[in-house]
């Protein structure tokens, strides 16, 4: 028996919004430590890794490890049926071929359940090595989303250059060129507004704007985003989900032809 309950459906809606543009389907691996999903996007350029810890749920029970392959478009249709303040419970029997989403209104007067067929997906798990990154940038997630959106107008790819002075995002194309520089903030009223840089060595890498923009769909999950970079290895874009886990996106840098 698997059962996981969240007080608010909003968080699950936001998680789905953060992955459904990149993935058509995904396998949710459930164990007593929580729920994990790892999947490459359709073109195999980026990787999504979602971790939701069992202690972050209002209620969590997982008697036996189960893997639930879900069509994310179908899941999105079901989650649309939940109000933001509904409690959501995800339930499945051991070896089941369906999963049930149950939504309860705050006053418990409306209860709805939606059963969805599970899929058998060919899952190809990738081992992600522990890496000490040369540069780790933390910045407001909305700021990163804005920069990605703005620079995508100029080019398909964006250069991210990180030094101890700051981080620079650049794009150039037929229209012209764009540069956005962010310095490390000295003092801020709110922690969420801070830009911080931990640098061992300066790094300059090029990434496809299309994927970066897809990652920023996770912005509603977290006020801050963390970018971890080293030469010649994939960028990690991480959004922490408060008290519940995180979503990480890995993107291979572009290489000069």
């Amino acid at each position: 028996m698997f059962e996981a309950r969240l007080i608010s459906a909003t968080i699950l809606k936001k998680i789905l919004d953060a992955i459904k543009d990149l993935l058509n389907e995904g396998t949710f691996d459930c164990s007593d430590s929580g729920i994990q999903l790892q999947a490459m996007d359709n073109s195999h350029v980026s990787l999504v890794s979602l971790t939701l810890r069992s202690d972050g749920f209002d209620k969590f029970r997982c008697d036996r490890n189960i893997s639930m392959g879900m069509n994310l478009g179908s899941m999105a249709k079901i989650l649309k049926c939940a109000n933001n303040d509904d409690t959501v419970t995800i339930k499945a029997q051991d070896n089941a071929d369906t999963v049930t989403f149950m939504f309860e209104s705050p006053n418990h007067e409306k209860v709805s359940d939606y059963e969805m067929k599970l899929m058998n997906l060919d899952q190809e798990h990738l081992g992600i090595p522990e890496t000490d990154y040369s540069c780790v940038v933390r910045m407001p997630s909305m700021e990163f989303a804005r920069i990605c959106r703005d620079l995508a107008q100029f080019s398909e790819s964006m250069l991210i250059c990180c030094t101890k002075e700051g981080v620079k995002f650049s794009a150039s194309g037929d229209v012209g060129s764009a540069n956005v520089k962010l310095a490390q903030t000295s003092s801020v009223d709110k922690e969420e507004e801070a830009v911080s840089i931990e640098m061992q060595e300066p790094v300059t890498l090029t990434f496809a704007c299309r994927y970066l923009n897809a990652f920023t769909k996770a912005s509603p999950l977290s006020g801050q985003v963390q970018l971890s970079m080293s030469a010649d290895v994939p960028l990690v874009v991480e959004y922490r989900i408060q008290d519940l886990g995180h979503i990480r996106y890995y993107l291979a840098p572009k290489i000069e032809d």
């Binding site: 490459m40 073109s43 195999h44 350029v45 980026s46 990787l47 190809e124 798990h125 990738l126 081992g127 992600i128 090595p129 496809a208 290895v233 994939p234 890995y250 993107l251 291979a252 840098p253 572009k254 290489i255 000069e256 032809d257």
Partner: peptide
């Protein structure tokens, strides 16, 4: 050129 992510991480 855009390499795939699988070229960086090994299958486990």
């Amino acid at each position: 050129m855009q390499p795939t992510i699988a070229s960086y991480f090994q299958k486990s």
